[in-house]
Amino acid sequence: MDAVVLIVVAGLFAVVSGVNDGGALLATGLKLPTVRPATGILALVVMVALVPLGTHQVALTFATRLAGFRAPGGEIAMTLAVISALAVVSALSAKGRPTSLTLAVVGGLTGAALGWGLPVSPGSVALVLAFGVAAPIVGGLLAWALVRVLVAVTTARGLARWHRAGFLLQTFAYAANDGQKMLAVFMIALGFQDAPPAYTSLVAVLFGLGTLYGLPKAGRTLSRELIVSRPAHGVAAELAAGVAVIACAVASMPVSMTQSVAGGLIGAGMAQGGGRVRWYATAKIGAAWLLTLPASALLSWALAALVRGLTLL
């Protein structure tokens, strides 16, 4: 019964990941018609389905390195972790503060494991958080340099080609890293440690449905609210975020694609003057990021401790 509930929660989580992440991945190129939304969503779905067949180390980090969810009660704790992450992200989004679902998941997993009495690896959690902080900073620095090069040497036609390359790099990076949090939940629910094509395909389809629903809102937040954006900014952010996130995937470290893209947009905006960055919106999103992990950890810890206490009565 616990596994059935977790499978249902895993499916819902994949849909919400599409709502939260999919639109953000398409947002940077909205001012360039090179990659149309329908084509972009299809590319995302294909990448999310196929890339984990070749590498799913980040999913294993979520499932096995942060805490011992294979122990008795692990399925219940994982369910409570995902529910807590979804609750925190939904609450912040409802208040106009979009945040990182990956941060929420890391907090939820850690808190739920502690609340249920499962073994937690402080070193792995600290390492994941360190990479999570570094990724948007690296993305911002790379975009700061890239946008200068693009503006100086690229024509409008050339920029369109770079946009195609950047979008493909970004979608590959998401499927190799951030997107694998969806597969990790199914790993715990069903007890596998590889990447069966049936489940990667299921995750991809559910993710695509969520992206269809979430594109308008998520796209507007990143493409319009963070900076006064021009096409070159979006292309630089795609390329920079893709490189940063793939580098983290090589180290098996999960990081947030949306945070990396946001860092890239801010870096690209600052390259042509800090006045392009809407600092109020940036501060609002940054505050949401800082709140997400502790809120998810606290909520999941409380839920896990409560449910475990009730099962022992």
Rank of each mutant, 00 (worst) to 15 (best):
E238R: 01
A249W: 06
L86I: 14
A281S: 15
I246L: 15
G40R: 01
G111K: 09
L209R: 11
V255A: 09
S90L: 15
G108I: 02
A247D: 08
I246S: 07
R278I: 09
I7V: 15
G264S: 13
A71C: 09
A184Y: 12
V255D: 02
V128G: 06
L146W: 03
W279Q: 11
A63K: 04
A49V: 06
V128S: 03
A85K: 10
S124H: 06
L215N: 02
V261E: 03
V185W: 08
L60M: 13
T99C: 13
L12W: 11
M78G: 00
L169K: 08
T61M: 01
V125A: 09
G18A: 08
T79Y: 05
Y213F: 15
G139K: 02
V58D: 04
R220M: 07
P254A: 12
V9P: 03
L109T: 06
R224D: 15
S300H: 05
G107A: 11
T258V: 15
R97S: 10
G40L: 04
V48Y: 10
L226N: 04
L303C: 11
E225D: 12
G158P: 01
W301K: 10
I266N: 02
V125N: 06
G179M: 13
V277I: 13
A176H: 11
K31A: 13
S256F: 04
P52S: 07
A10W: 01
A152R: 15
G54S: 07
L109P: 03
S121V: 07
L183A: 12
A232S: 03
W162T: 03
G132C: 03
P72G: 05
L32K: 03
A38S: 02
A262F: 00
E75K: 14
G219I: 02
G242N: 06
G29Q: 02
G267F: 05
V245L: 03
Q193S: 14
Y213C: 10
T258S: 15
L202G: 13
T55H: 14
I76Y: 05
